[in-house]
Each structure stands twice: as structure tokens, then as C-alpha cells.
Computed example of a mutant assay.
Amino acid sequence: MRQTDTMSVGAALRGWFRRTGSEILGWVVVVVGVILMPLPGPGMVIVVSGLAILSRHYVWAQRVLGPLERKATEAAKFGVETWPRIAVSFLGGVWLAVLGVIWWIGPDIPEFEVLGVGFGPELPAQGWATALGLWASAVAAWALLAYSVVRWREPRPADVP
């Protein structure tokens, strides 16, 4: 095989991935996110990530993503406006991490019924998979909080010495 043949194969693969491969990846990410939505974990973040990938190829995905980006930016700015809000957001991540530990350990719970569906003595969906989802959500929350603080936190006169 000549040097130009391998370069053209590489260029063809890159071209394929830019269009078809990234489109397949976007749809797979969206489907995985939809499947994860009812479970504890970052399902919605995964769906939005898939939409971001698909927005490179589809105008409808760009239209869906635009308002989501604006609302997310507004919420992030609001969330880091004061230090108490930042602290509560951080503690939300701590809560997710603690819940992950509880679901990993899987203690027995009292038996009870909600709308005819019985629960207990085991936690619903207990185990390492749910724990990993909760921990991933905590890490994502902390990462997004840190990004929001760096990106949108404006110093207030009370913050400046």
C-alpha cells in the first residue's frame, strides 16, 4: 500500500466520522440519556450532550438546544449570584454522594406501599450501578458549579476586601 493510499483512507475515515459517525454517536447518546432519565443519575445531561452533538447536523437540534442553553445560562448565573446559593448547590452534590454510599451499601428499609406498589426490605435498585449513577451526578454537579463560579460569578462589593 502506498503512502497516498493510507492518507486517503485516513481522510475518508475522518470524513465519515465527521458526518455519519458523529451522527450515530449523537443518537446513541440521546437514547442512553432517555433510558437513564428515570434512574438516579445524569440522564438529562446526557440527552442534552447528545443534542449538542446532533446540532452539528440538524437544524431542529439547534432549535431545541438554543433555548436550553439560554435557560441553563440564566440558571447558572442565578445559582452563583450569592455565596449561600453556592453553598447549597455544593451541599446538593454532597447529598448525592452520600446517597450513592447508601445505595451501594444497600441497608434494609422498612416495608411500605405506595399506590399499591410494595417496597422493602431492600432499597429499590440498590447496588453499585445506582451508586455509580449518583456519584457521577455529584461529580457533574460539582464540575458545573465550579465552571459556573469561574465563568459567571461577578465580584460584589461585599466580596472585595
Rank of each mutant, 00 (worst) to 15 (best):
G41Y: 02
L132H: 04
I86P: 05
A52H: 04
E74H: 12
L39K: 09
G92V: 09
A97K: 09
W27K: 07
R56S: 07
L134R: 00
W27C: 02
M44R: 02
G41T: 00
V64L: 12
V32L: 02
W60D: 09
I105V: 15
G120M: 10
A75T: 06
A11E: 06
A72R: 09
P107T: 13
L54E: 01
V48Q: 08
M37H: 02
G33L: 08
V29Q: 02
V28H: 00
W135P: 00
V114D: 08
W103C: 09
R85L: 13
L115H: 11
I109N: 04
I53K: 01
W95Q: 15
T73H: 09
A72S: 10
G50Q: 00
T130R: 01
P110I: 01
A72H: 08
D5A: 12
S22W: 10
M37D: 01
A129R: 12
V59Y: 11
L39A: 11
L115R: 05
P42K: 10
G106Q: 07
I102N: 06
F112S: 09
G66Q: 11
V94R: 12
L51W: 11
F119R: 03
I86W: 05
V9F: 14
E122Y: 04
V101Y: 08
K77P: 10
V64I: 15
A136C: 15
L68Y: 07
G41R: 03
I102F: 05
P124S: 04
A75M: 10
L68P: 07
P42Q: 05
Q62R: 13
L123N: 07
T82W: 07
V28T: 11
S137G: 15
A12E: 07
